[in-house]
């Protein structure tokens, strides 16, 4: 029997073993939400609405992502099936690195969620846990920031790709998967041993660190979205609310692989702009945060935010 995993709150059946993901405790329906299998992927898609060097999106929303080294993914129009064509061994970490990154972003949009390029942590408040997300470009320290929160006893919802879903209950963040993907320098800062840690790619000193109990497995309401940047000069430090058009423009920028993925979303659905403006309006706080570089300053930030949103976590 194909194992069933949890990913973003969906039940996933996968021919590819996914040790990163928790196994479901109980199958909710005979059909999984998402199926991952090995198979043939066409050389190209007909009738393209987006055509990049690696990604193609068909006018019906079907997407094809081809990576160097012979690894190709196909995501069906409904975001219910991922097909993987590769000669790499099934245990190769490269397959999961792209599956749980770029390919997951495509699936989210096809399923009506908005993937943000953000880390997200759960903060305890007197009224229960809330989610706080930090969006930033790659290389700006999202995973380092998430590690600092985890080191302070907070639970993780997302490391690099946070999935938000706007509904009657407001904007919720879905728990992505219980791993932090950390480069060697961040592993060292937070005292994670690289011995026995799995590499995200065989050739790179980037490791997949299991979160265990430090993962929030249920969706949580998003209390605030921070647009995070690191600066070298204290004069460029900034913390201010973003509102209106500014908040919307920044949110658009924060959508994971926005340029390509919005093509995928718009291919056959109602315009995603309606979903985006509704989501922006329903997020209680948008902030611009330019943070001075350095681990001591980062610690101060984490303590300040934990204090701002609620009560100090235990442990």
């Amino acid at each position: 029997m194909t194992p069933r995993y949890e990913l973003c709150g969906w039940q996933v059946e996968s021919e590819l073993p996914l040790p990163e993901l928790p196994l479901v405790e109980e199958a909710l329906s005979p059909r999984p939400d998402l199926t991952i299998r090995f198979g043939e992927v066409p050389e190209s898609l007909p009738d393209l609405s987006f055509s990049g060097p690696l990604l193609q999106v068909g006018s019906d929303g079907t997407s094809r992502l081809a990576l160097p080294g012979g690894l190709t993914f196909l995501v069906d129009r409904a975001g219910q099936q991922i097909t993987i064509a590769t000669k790499l061994p099934a245990g190769s970490p490269a397959i999961r690195a792209f599956l749980l990154g770029n390919v997951l972003g495509l699936v989210c949009l096809r399923r009506g969620g908005l993937p943000l390029h953000a880390c997200c942590i759960a903060l305890p408040t007197p009224e229960g846990e809330v989610a706080v997300a930090f969006t930033a470009p790659s290389g700006s320290g999202k995973s380092t920031l998430a590690s600092a929160f985890v080191a302070h006893g907070c639970r993780l919802l997302a490391d690099d790709l946070a999935v938000v879903s706007a509904g009657a209950a407001g904007v919720q963040v879905l728990p992505t998967f219980p791993r932090l993907r950390l480069w060697r320098d961040t592993m060292d800062i937070f005292g994670h041993s690289v011995e026995g840690s799995e590499r995200v790619r065989d050739e790179m000193e980037k490791y997949s660190v299991p979160m265990g109990r430090a993962f929030a497995r249920k969706p949580l309401p998003l209390a605030a979205l921070y647009h995070y940047a690191r600066v070298e000069d204290d004069r460029h430090a900034e913390l201010r609310r973003a509102r209106g058009i500014d908040a919307t423009a920044r949110f658009l920028d924060a959508i994971y692989q926005r340029r390509a993925l919005l093509c995928a979303a718009a291919a056959d659905q109602a315009t995603p702009m309606a979903l985006i403006t509704r989501t922006v309006g329903a997020i209680p706080e948008h902030w611009v945060l330019a943070q001075p570089n350095g681990i001591a300053r980062l610690e101060q930030l984490v303590e300040r935010l934990i204090g701002k949103y609620g009560v100090a976590a235990e442990g």
């Binding site: 470009p137 790659s138 790619r201 340029r259």
Partner: peptide
Amino acid sequence: SRVVFDRVMAIESSDLT
């Protein structure tokens, strides 16, 4: 620029060698 590469290629270069 990593940001531009990632946007144009529609890929996360942090996962590439």
